[in-house]
Structures are given as C-alpha cells and as structure tokens.
Design a protein around this nucleic acid. Structure first.
Length: 879
DNA sequence: GCATGTGACATTTTT
DNA sequence: TGTCACATGC
C-alpha cells in the first residue's frame, strides 16, 4: 500500500492511518499504558504529543499523521495522569472525524473512550452545553435544532408578515446573512448597521432580531445558536464559564484552519484558566469578531469593513476586541498568562471553507492570539510519492498568505503527475473511463480510485459514462441523510408528538401525505394561532370544533389531531422505535412512498427503515430527537468495490492510490465566481483546493483539462487553468488524451483534433499563453478581443469548426469500431442478455422503462422519465 | 387542491 | 440543459 524507504518504520508509522494494526499498538497500550504508543512517532510528532503545557499549534501538512498525533496526545495525557477522560475537551468539525478519533482511541486505550464525554463536534458539544443552561437562552432543554430548510421556511414567514417581496429579497439570502453573522459571533444588536441594512432596504437587522424571537417561541435553535448562545451565556455568567474552565484541563482542536470566529471565541473563552474571582475582564476582553477586522491579505475590503464596524457598532465587546487584536499589548498578555493547555491541529494550506465563514486568520494568527504558543510543524508526508508531493508543494508555494511548510517524503519519486488535454468534456470523461479500466485491469481496486471535481455538475458526465461502461461508482457527498425529504418528514411527525409547539414540523407534515389540507387551511390555522397566541397544533384542535372549514378539510384535520393525540398516549406504553413504525404506518406516510413509482422511492423506504433502526441507539424519543440533527451521518456504504466520485471539498481528509482531477480550466477551476467575489483571497483558496486535490493521491495523480465544456447546456471554449502553469515541469508529464485516440483513424476530425492535442501540450505554457492569462486577469473576461494569445485563438477556431460537438455528430464520423464499447460487449457478452424486447425494467438511477434494443449484454431502454439510455443489463432488474 | 406549464437559475456545504 | 419553484388552469 505504502512504500517507503525504511521498512522498519513503515508499519509502525503508516498502518494506523489506514487500518488497525493487528494486535499491535492497541494490545500493547492496553497491556501497560507505557510509552510504547510513542515509539512509532517521528521526532516532530512526538514533540506534538509530549508538549502538554501551554498553547500548542501543530501545523500538520497533508498526510503527516495529524489524527495520529491528536489521539496519541490524548492517550499520553491520560497515561501521564494529567487529566481524567472527562476533563479533556476535544473538538472536531465532522461526526466522521469524531468517530474516527474515538475509534482510534479505543484501539489504543481499550474501553477508556467510553469516558470521553467531551469528544465531539463543535456543534454537538456546543449543543450539549446549551441544553444544560437552556433557560438562560430562553429555551427549554428539549429545544429543537433547526436545519437550513426549517430556517428558510421560518424566515419566509417573517418576510411575508413584513410584506417584503421575497422575490427581490429571498429568504435564502437572509438565511445566509444571518448564518454569516452568527459565524462571526454577532448577535442582532452587534451586527454593524451598515451590514444589517443590505437586506430589504435596511430591515435585515430587525429581521434577524425577530427571527431570534421566533426561535425562542418555537423552542428551537439553529446550528449557529449552538455556539453563539454558549458564548453569550459564558459572557453573561462568569460563574458558569468558570465551571467549564475548571473542568477542561486540556483542550484539543482538530482542523483549526476551518474554525470561524464564533468557534474561535468559544474556544478562547473556554481555554482561559479559571480565575478565582469573577473576572471583571471576562466581558470586554475576551473574544473578537475577527472577520470584521481587516485581513492582512486583502487590504481594500478589510479596511472599509473595519472602519464601518468601529463606526457603526460601538459595542463594547467589539471595540475592545478589535483593539486587542490590533494591539497585542492591550491586556492580551495579561490574559494569556492564564491560557491553559490548548492544542490546535490544522493546516493553513488546506483551508478551503473560507466562503462558509472559516477564518484562515485564526490559524495564521495563533501565536498572536495565544502568545507563547509553541508551533510545531509536521512536514514528513507518509502518503504520496515524490513527484506528487513536489507538484502539490510547488503549486501551493504560489500562495502568499501562508505560514509555510515544506512537505517531504522518503518515498520514491513514483510516477509523474500527468496533465492531459481533451477536446471536450465528453472526451475527458471517455479518456478517464478508459484509464480507469486500464488501472482495473492491472489489478487495482476501484475503491482506490477517485475522481475529484470542482463543481458537482461535472459529475454528471462521469456518471453517464460509467453507466454505459458498466463501471461501478459511488457519489460521495450530496444531501446528508437527515436532509432527505423522507427523513425530515418522518422526523417532523416525531417532533410534533414530542413537542406540540413545533409549528414548523406540524406545518411540514399536515398535508403529507396529501390529505386535502392545502394552503388555505394552513393559512387559516396560522391566523387562528396568531390571534390566540397558541401553537398551530392547538389552533387545529380548536378549528375542527368550529365550522370554519369545509367539511372535507375539517374531517381530515380532525383525524390528524386525533391521530397525534393517540400517538402521544401510546408514547407512554410503547418503545420509541415501535412508536415510529406505528406513526409512519398509520399516517399513511409509508404507503405514500410504496405507491410512488419513481426511481428513488425504494431507496426512500429503505432510508426510513434505517432511521427507525438508528433510533434504537437512543434511550427514548426525546434523546433521539436531541441528537438526530447533530450526529446523523450519511451512510458511507463503502463495502462494494467502486470508483468514488466527489467534489474537491468533500475529498478533504481522504486518500486514494489513484486520483483523477478533471476540469482544470479557467472559470471552472479556479472558479470564476470565487475570483469575482473574493478576489485574490479567493484565488488562494482555489489554489489550496488544488493542493488538497493533489495531496489526496498516494501513487498517481492525473490532471485534465478540456478545450470545450458544456456549461448549462451551451458549449463554450475554455482555456487551461493557470494552476497548470504553476506546476513544476520536472514532476509533470504532458500526455495525450486517450479518449481522443479512440477515434483515431482518418479524416477531418480525428486527425486535426489529435494534432491540436499536441498543440495544447506545448502551447499552454508558452510565453504567449502566459501573456494571454495576464491580459485576461487584468481585463476581466470580456469577449474575444485581440492580444489574447495564440492558444485561445486557436481554440476558438476549433469551436467554429464544430458548433456543437455532441455525441451524435462525432459518432457519425466514426470510422473503425469504437474500442471502448466494443471491449465492453466483448468482455461479458458470452452470456446473452436475460432480457427480451419490451421487457419492463427498473434501473437504480433512471427508474422504470421498457427495453427497446438488445445488443449482447447491452440494452437500450426507453425510460419513462429519463428518456432513452444505453445500459448494461446487470444494472437493471425486471420491474 | 392538484396537475401541468413557464421562467429563472445555475459553486464549493462539516453541523 | 435540466431542475426547481411558482403560477396558471382544471
């Protein structure tokens, strides 16, 4: 799997990163919790583990064993007797990371993990703290955590109530703004008025305030509140803060580069050593809405933001904070004398969530925020071969705002990173498909192959291709489990049972499945509820006693109310899992999906079962609902051998032997939109994304760019990404597109295109091309003016030759047999298909259809919804 | 209240 | 191009 030059260290070093060492570390650690667990560490890792006192920043480059350091550090703290498990606060961003840490700790320590109650995500721990002190945030401890969808629906109602045109001012936008404010630690009164004014002609701030009010009435909190309300409580109740400060002897933070301001503040408050007296400083001195402060990296925007902030929001917290940030002498030293043992692990070069509020600044300024901090760099990479690492390092070196690390490996050079140009995105997909088959023939597992795209719309082409090839693939990412409609519906039923005041949940399911209770009815209920200041459910109960509704709706609504009353009664005598089954059944919800003929109905029913199954892990309905929105993960389902298809973002933290990186073109990657919106900072983040992509690869990294890409239906000509020029020539090899050669042969297209392929290879790094880029960057993407450089002129002349290079026009020019499809048929065609013409079939992705043509094991199927597709017969089943 | 048509719109997404 | 949200018509 991993080849390195020092065999003796290989196992000890790299195995825990990939699989449990058979009876190794875990067993030894259990036998005697001695220093054995330290033995496999390199000197830097060891230092990161053993430096227990004071603030520590571990800059852990990609593949340098960051999780290992974190878990070993915890083991070390415990084995040294410096703290009990319940005295260690250990936060991650994702449930996956938290689980991974628990798992590894379990291996090292046996059962001690059970006693690590404070290892979890920021939000789950924040939520836990908030539930403990809910009343201080005007909530009950059983408050509901709203997801984005609920959030938006709630905001929509507020907009309507305020007569704001939600076409012009979409609720989603407001949700984004509020989220952003919360990410920055700003309560409604703290939002700079300039910013609050950008929405709906100055109503933004007021809407934020009324949104918060509504949340309290609904006994609900959104994700942002889980941290922001903690911060507020900590600030307003120093005694409570002190309690936590005393409890947590050690704090560990994973992926520190991804923390936002709120998370920073939260950590910062908790990381101060408890003072014996209520500190008069706690309020003013701690914390900083850092993003409101100028980033050193983008002067223009930052300055104005800061000016605006200071001028517009003379909130004591903000002012003292910005001063503290700017002037290290102002009280900060004093304060940090009391900073306790906090260890943050992260990699500024992998900060790719700036657009979501992550502050690279947090990591860049760590030693400023925590003076006296020890900074330890992990630079030895145990993952990638030399060429890959060199390419990634060289690329990221073009960024200016970074702390700087030099990754090194003792691995061999391996294969060079390849860069391949294709005529268009279809050819790119064909070429990659072919290379994957080749890799597969060499005996590599499909599980060790990943395609990492910048934007999810790129996936489609690959999916189509893989479906025709019969190549198993899985898409990673997409909607999370609890975000799926069927799960949210089911949860809504349970929420209404658990908390009759949950109007959002009630509204969601009152007419799902359809019961003839449409907008008019719901509107009526709303009026009633508002007039009498009661929840919707109670309004419904009252309204069915009147004759305000038509008989049909009235009966229907009466049934709903009666059902919920019954279910609530049953709750006392039935287990929560059973209750869930009863509810889904009696409500007609399950039946609704059983009747549904669309392709994903079966999957939805499966998800519902999975939901009920997952409830067993919780003691009761209440406990389940409290955690569901925070800990429910999408199912990974990595058991079968398949190629992974995902965005660069979701690839962070993963690794594969073979990594394909398509779509390295200006506009797509780096994304034009990011460039437009974030300027240079955006470009650097895109570059980090490229760095993340490359460093996912262990043995092979392959980059692609196409000259023509279809974006939203129309073909447009693109130019290769500037990042290609930033790769080091010595570690990169320019290759030809395999997909292109499939047409090989004679005649106009194939030949000229092939020539052009070579032109790509040699042209994209010429001075002319460089100049073209420089012009483009300066000139801001106008139409085809002169002086653009040879490459694009060449490219656009191609596009005029073929205004629409779609599959049809190509295949009609095709001469010889097409090897890709030929091979496919030949491979498994010995068996004739078990299907016959006009058979009714079902396909996972396309749904139901009828077979219209049979060619060996290859079927042409006219799908009811998806139209005509060619599909390998093993992918469909009889309907 | 529901099915069908029409227009706007299109990154990345831990919790 | 394809999806999704809304509006119109039955």
């Amino acid at each position: 799997m991993i080849r390195m030059t020092e065999p003796s260290k290989i196992t000890s070093q790299s195995v825990p990163d990939h699989q449990p060492a058979a009876g190794g570390i875990a067993a030894r650690a259990r036998a005697s919790v001695g220093p054995q667990y330290l033995s496999g560490l390199n000197p830097e890792q060891r230092e990161a583990v053993e430096t227990l006192d004071g603030p520590v920043l571990v800059l852990a480059g990609a593949g340098t064993g960051k999780t290992r350091v974190l878990t070993t550090r915890i083991a070390h703290i415990l084995s040294q007797g410096r703290a009990r498990p319940s005295e260690i606060l250990s936060v991650t961003f994702t449930n996956k990371a938290a689980r991974e840490m628990k798992h590894r700790l379990g291996q090292m320590l046996g059962h001690a993990v059970e006693g690590m109650p404070w290892l979890g995500t920021f939000h789950s721990i924040g939520g836990r703290i908030l539930r403990t002190h809910a009343e201080l945030a005007q909530l009950k401890s059983n408050f509901t955590v709203l997801d984005v969808d609920d959030q938006v629906r709630l905001l929509k109602q507020l907009l309507q109530a305020d007569n704001i045109d939600d076409k012009r001012w979409p609720a989603r936008m407001l949700a984004g703004l509020i989220d952003g404010w919360k990410n920055r630690g700003l309560t409604p009164s703290q939002v700079p008025s300039g910013e609050a004014a950008v929405f709906a002609n100055g109503k933004g701030g007021k809407l934020y305030a009324s949104y918060q009010e509504r949340l309290k009435i609904l006994n609900a909190a959104d994700f942002g509140d889980l941290l922001l309300e903690d911060i507020r409580i900590f600030r307003e109740h120093p005694d409570i803060l002190r309690q936590y400060q005393q409890r947590f002897k050690f704090i560990l933070v994973d992926e520190y580069q991804d923390t936002n301001v709120a998370q920073y503040l939260w950590l910062r408050l908790l990381s101060q050593a408890p003072t014996s007296f209520a500190s008069p400083r706690v309020r003013g001195e701690v914390g900083s809405p850092g993003s409101a402060i100028a980033r050193p990296s983008d002067p223009g925007e930052g300055d104005s933001q800061q000016a605006e902030l200071v001028e517009a929001a003379p909130h004591p917290d903000l002012l003292s904070v910005s001063e503290a940030r700017r002037d290290p002498a102002s009280g900060e030293k004093e304060q940090t004398r009391h900073v306790k043992n906090i260890c943050c692990v992260g990699d500024d070069d992998q900060s790719i969530y700036g657009w979501r509020g992550a502050e690279v600044d947090n990591i860049l300024r760590f030693d400023h925020d925590f003076p006296g901090a020890k900074v330890i760099r992990l630079e030895r990479n145990y993952r990638s071969t030399g060429h890959i690492l060199a390419a990634a390092s060289h690329l990221i070196a073009h960024n200016e705002g970074r702390l700087g690390k030099t990754l090194r490996t003792e691995d061999q050079d391996g294969e060079k990173v390849t860069v391949t140009g294709s005529w268009d995105s279809e050819e790119e997909a064909r070429g990659i498909g072919e290379e994957i088959e080749q890799i597969q023939r060499q005996g590599d597992k499909l599980n060790e192959i990943a395609i990492l795209v910048r934007a999810s719309y790129q996936m489609r082409e690959f999916e189509d291709r893989f479906v025709t090839l019969g190549l198993p693939y899985r898409v990673i990412g997409g909607p999370r489990f609890y975000e799926r409609a069927e799960i949210r519906d089911a949860l809504a039923y349970l929420r209404v049972i658990n908390s009759p005041a949950d109007d959002l949940a009630f509204e969601r399911i009152v007419n799902t499945p359809k019961r003839g209770l449409g907008d008019a009815t719901v509107q009526m209920l709303h009026d009633h509820a508002r007039k009498r200041r009661i929840p919707l459910f109670e309004a419904a109960r009252a309204v069915v006693e009147t004759d305000e509704l038509k008989p049909k709706a009235r009966g229907s609504l009466r049934d709903v109310v009666a059902q919920f009353d019954r279910w609530r009664a049953q709750r006392e005598v039935t287990s929560h899992t059973e209750l869930a089954e009863i509810v889904l059944d009696e409500s007609g919800y399950t039946e609704m999906w059983q009747k549904d003929r669309s392709a994903d109905a079966a999957g939805r029913l499966e998800n519902l079962k999975e939901l009920v199954r997952s409830m067993e892990e919780f003691e009761n309905l209440q406990g389940f609902l409290e955690h569901i929105s925070l800990v429910m993960d999408r199912d990974s389902g990595a058991d079968e051998d398949a190629v992974s298809l995902m965005t660069l973002h979701s690839a962070k933290g993963l690794e594969f032997d073979n990594v394909f990186l398509p779509g390295w073109e200006e506009g797509l990657f780096p994304s034009q939109r990011t460039l437009d919106e974030q300027g240079r900072a955006g470009l650097e983040e895109e570059r980090r994304l490229g760095h993340v992509g490359l460093t996912r690869a262990r043995r092979r990294a392959k980059i692609y760019f196409a000259t023509n890409r279809r974006i939203h239906g129309t073909w447009s000509t693109t130019i290769p990404s500037r990042f290609l020029d930033e790769l080091p020539a010595a570690n990169v090899e320019i290759t030809e597109s395999k997909g292109g050669s499939a047409w090989g042969g004679t005649g106009g297209y194939g030949a000229s295109r092939f020539d052009d392929m070579e032109a790509f290879g040699s042209t994209y790094s010429t001075p002319g091309w460089q100049r073209a880029q420089a012009n483009r960057n300066r000139g801001g993407g106008g139409g085809g003016n002169g002086g653009r450089g040879s490459f694009e002129e060449q490219a656009s002349s191609f596009s005029s030759q073929s205004s629409s290079p779609d599959f049809g026009s190509f295949s009609s020019r095709r001469r010889g047999p097409l090897t890709i499809e030929g091979e496919l048929v030949a491979k498994s065609t010995g068996t004739t298909s078990e299907f016959s013409l006009s058979d009714r079939v079902f396909h996972q992705k396309f749904g139901y259809g009828r077979v219209t043509k049979i060619d060996g094991n290859k079927l042409t199927i006219a799908f009811d919804k998806a139209g005509e597709k060619k599909v390998v017969d093993s992918f469909v089943q009889r309907a």
